[in-house]
Amino acid sequence: MRAPEHILRVWHRFDGYPMETLTKAWYSLQPGEGGQRSVPEMKEHRERYGITGNCFDLAIWLLDDYRAEGITAYAVGHDLGSPMAHVAVVAEDETGRRYFCDLGDQWIQPILVDYEPYADSKEAHEGFITGGRIQVSLDASAQHVEFSYVRTGGKMSKQSFHLAPIAMENLLAAADHSQRLLRHPLVEHRLYLPGEVVHWEFDRWTSFFSRNGGLDREAQLHSNEEWAQRIHRISGIDFQVVLQALNIYSALTVE
């Protein structure tokens, strides 16, 4: 189920890259800017400010890196054009077997989709998501996959993807829509600790660690300046960028 080394080599370039919605708020302040950034822009902003972007940014960037290495890859997703939109990447090995690569949800590593034993097994696999295990169900057409996230204590959630490639023009249109949609501040970041990969999350002015043993909630803070310091310390994103983004989100009224 582990991806081959050439697919993993590209994937691991993004190990220190958080998924975050701060960038699109900050980018909306730049003169004449807004919408989906190009890969060269993303690389420049990463170098200057430590920012990465949301699931669209990361998927488009990962796609570009895979294709530059001669690896067949394409975007997949669900609910495009809506606030629930999410995209990931499928990369293929030399035999055409597909590996699901989700930087947006900060998976630890890609997972093999084309695996015959999935059809007859409810086994939950470790080492792909933090703080839990993953079940994979591929339908008979091999064009629809469902992931069941089994958390510590038995809590389960599900997510489904159509595996048909999203055309680049449709991907960019959905990405542009998402980048202009400001709703809530969110930062998710994998932290590689001795013996464990930990998932840190900031969501609407709360933050917590997801560990193998469960959730570890952090102390509540009381100002955007304090939150910006915490986010900067964990993610490495420029303090001023974080603070500007949080101030934008604070001014919004979103249900």
Rank of each mutant, 00 (worst) to 15 (best):
V187G: 01
I231Y: 01
V242N: 03
W200T: 03
H232R: 10
Q244I: 06
S235C: 02
R217W: 14
I237C: 01
L193K: 13
S235A: 07
S223T: 13
A245W: 09
N212I: 03
H199F: 15
G214M: 05
I234S: 09
D216M: 14
G236L: 05
P194C: 08
E196N: 04
R204A: 10
H232W: 08
L215K: 13
G236S: 04
A245M: 06
R233P: 00
E218K: 01
H222D: 05
E226V: 07
N224E: 12
G195M: 10
G213R: 13
G236M: 05
H199A: 11
Q220R: 09
L246C: 04
T206I: 08
F209E: 14
F208H: 14
D203A: 10
Q229I: 13
G236P: 02
F209K: 12
A228N: 06
N212R: 10
H189C: 13
I237H: 03
G195E: 09
E196A: 04
S235H: 02
F239A: 09
Q240E: 15
S207W: 01
H222R: 11
V242Q: 02
N212G: 11
N212Y: 03
E226S: 11
S210A: 15
P194T: 03
A219T: 12
E188P: 00
L243G: 02
S210G: 10
R233W: 08
R211F: 06
L193M: 14
A228G: 11
V197L: 03
F208Y: 14
H222I: 02
E225A: 15
R230T: 01
I237Y: 02
H232I: 01
L191W: 08
L246A: 06
F209H: 14
Q229D: 14
L243Y: 11
G214H: 01
L193F: 13
R204N: 13
S235E: 05
V198C: 08
Q220P: 01
E188W: 08
D238P: 11
R190G: 09
H199C: 10
E196V: 09
Q240N: 15
E225W: 11
D238E: 12
V242K: 04
F209I: 03
Q229G: 13
G213H: 06
V198E: 11
R211E: 09
A245V: 04
D203P: 00
R233A: 14
Q240M: 13
I231S: 05
F202Q: 00
R217C: 12
H232A: 13
A228H: 04
W200S: 02
F209C: 06
R190H: 09
S210I: 15
D238Y: 08
Q220A: 11
S223W: 10
L221V: 03
R233Q: 13
Q229C: 13
L193N: 11
I234C: 02
H232D: 05
S207D: 12
I237E: 00
L193S: 12
R190S: 12
R233S: 14
E188R: 14
R217M: 14
L243Q: 07
L246K: 02
